[in-house]
């Protein structure tokens, strides 16, 4: 919810600009494919390239929009990985039930984890944004936090799926 309100604030400020963004996920994906250490250094590469390649990219609004574009890339990956993991844990729960194993539901543990993560991420990013006070850095800082935290959650879920990058 907070994230949604935040993106509206950014996009309202940049109606014409969204089409002119030179965003591509290539830089982030190349960094991951190259095996950069730590992999946490890869999220933000595409946003950085977008800021450089977009005309007037170093304005606060453009920076926020480039970072937001990469946030959407990670959020799409997160949704795909999460759905895959939910499906896998449903299968495991069904298998355990069929073999009479009284083991706590993996799917429930996964859903509780993801709910707790969203609340933490939004609260932590609100807090980080508050450190910038009302300054112009607050917008990009808040978007960067959402993008970085979402990328890290993708790494965790992909680790659980047995693929690290």
């Amino acid at each position: 919810m907070k994230a949604a309100a935040f993106v509206l604030a950014i996009l309202a400020a940049a109606p014409a600009l969204a089409q002119d963004l030179a965003f591509s996920e290539a830089a982030t994906e190349a960094c991951l494919a190259d095996g950069a250490e730590p992999r946490e250094s890869c999220p933000g590469r595409s946003a950085g390239a977008c800021i450089e390649d977009t005309e007037g990219g170093y304005s606060t609004v453009s920076m926020g929009a480039c970072i937001w574009a990469e946030y959407q890339y990670w959020d799409d990956r997160l949704n795909a990985s999460y759905q895959e993991l939910v499906a896998r844990s449903e299968d495991a729960d069904a298998e355990n039930a069929a073999s009479g194993l009284a083991i706590a539901s993996q799917e429930q543990a996964l859903r509780e984890m993801q709910r707790a993560w969203i609340v933490f991420r939004d609260t932590a990013c609100d807090f980080e944004r508050s450190l910038w006070g009302g300054g112009t850095g607050a917008g990009p800082a808040g978007a960067d936090c959402l993008m970085q935290e979402t990328a890290r959650q993708v790494f965790r879920l992909d680790d659980a799926l047995g693929r690290g990058r």
């Binding site: 844990s89 993996q106 984890m113 993560w117 933490f120 659980a160």
Partner: peptide, 13 residues
């Protein structure tokens, strides 16, 4: 709260 929920989801399998 999230850390504990996360770690629980990791060892649950």
């Amino acid at each position: 709260a999230w850390r504990d929920a996360l770690c629980r989801s990791e060892w649950a399998p």
